[in-house]
């Protein structure tokens, strides 16, 4: 069993030469929650639909679970919750799950128990005999998640899975994704909600204007800047100006009158500079009470990489001119 569940090489899907996704080369390891992140219209759904064979790529190639996309075998162990989820609303929830169990090739003997378990998992027990047309949007998204999981997939594509859910529902879906990861399944999460990705994803790819900006382990990607929060006595703006060779920026934070010293957010170029900072502060007679490394928010990481990519493009254009 390969450790890579999704591989793409220059996968491109353009519509009359516009939009879609362009030249995406990606590898998704098994057993992770992979966040595919980008603003609306960045090409995330196009990428997923191309992977599932709903769209035909205009260039490049790709494999799902080691098999080329377009081959039905590639979809045998795949589940999918589309962004625009619509199901046969004249069916009941139970009939829908039975139909998808049949389509996914679930053995008859396992169907009843699996459906019962999934209904429980998505919180629809007791509503399975209602027609889908009577479901709220959130319930339809829940039955969609159950549908995606009915074939006991190794890989699940969830395209904006919490778009119709309330905060409790969103938390339940986050828990579900973590459960799936614990079970060894891979979740490919398409989202424009940074907070959603930040909370559950181990690996992240960022797409912007059809292009893949960056991909990798979230821990490494987020290591784009080192920030530390300090609380110290005897610090002033003048001091930070004197330490310009060491720090990138210093921003005062709100302090409580009950606290000794003032709080600052310091940005450094590298993590290795943290001991240097401490040494400098000590040398300058600053009394340091607290120093806490701060993880940058996904939003900062996203903006950092998108900004970097755009700067590269601008530089490339200038070189050509």
């Amino acid at each position: 069993m390969s450790d890579i569940v999704i591989s793409t090489w220059g996968l491109t899907k353009q519509f009359d030469g516009r939009a879609g996704c362009r030249d995406i080369t990606l590898q998704v390891p098994r057993g992770v929650v992979f966040g595919f992140l980008g603003p609306n219209g960045a090409g995330k759904s196009t990428f997923v639909r191309t992977m599932l064979g709903l769209l035909h790529p205009t260039a490049g190639r790709a494999e799902l679970l080691g098999k080329p996309i377009g081959n039905i075998e590639a979809r045998r162990k795949v589940g999918y919750l589309p962004e625009l989820f619509r199901y046969q609303d004249w069916l009941t929830g139970l009939q829908l799950l039975e139909t998808h169990a049949e389509l996914a090739g679930v053995p008859r003997s396992l169907r009843r128990e699996r459906i019962r378990h999934l209904l429980e998992r998505v919180g629809l027990t007791g509503r399975e005999n209602d027609k889908i047309r009577g479901y709220s949007k959130g319930m339809q998204q829940r039955i969609g998640i159950a549908c995606a999981l009915i074939g006991d997939p190794e890989l699940v594509f969830l395209d904006e899975p919490t778009s119709a859910l309330d905060p409790i529902g969103r938390r339940e879906v986050r828990d579900l994704m973590m459960d799936l990861r614990r079970e060894g399944k891979t979740v490919f999460l398409n989202s424009h909600l940074l907070s959603e990705v930040e909370n559950v994803c181990d690996h992240v790819a960022i797409v912007h204007k059809s292009d893949l900006v960056v991909q990798g382990e979230w821990r490494k990607l987020s290591d784009v800047q080192t920030q530390v929060e300090i609380r110290a006595e005897g610090v002033s703006l003048a001091l930070w100006q004197a330490l310009q060779h060491l720090i990138v920026s210093a921003k005062p934070l709100e302090s409580s009158v009950m606290m000794t010293g003032s709080r600052w957010l310091i940005q450094l170029s590298h993590e290795e500079q943290v001991p240097d900072l401490v040494e400098c502060l000590h040398r300058e007679g600053v009394r340091l009470y607290e120093l806490t490394p701060r993880q940058p928010a996904l939003e900062d990481v996203f903006l950092h990489w998108v900004g970097r990519k755009e700067a590269e493009h601008a530089h490339h254009r200038e070189t050509l001119l």
Binding site: L52, L54, I72, R75, G79, P82, L84, L103, F157
Partner: peptide, 14 residues
């Protein structure tokens, strides 16, 4: 048009 076909075609089906 309604995208109902999407989930069906994501199954191992020609």
């Amino acid at each position: 048009e309604s995208h109902q076909i999407d989930t069906i075609l994501s199954r191992p089906l020609h």
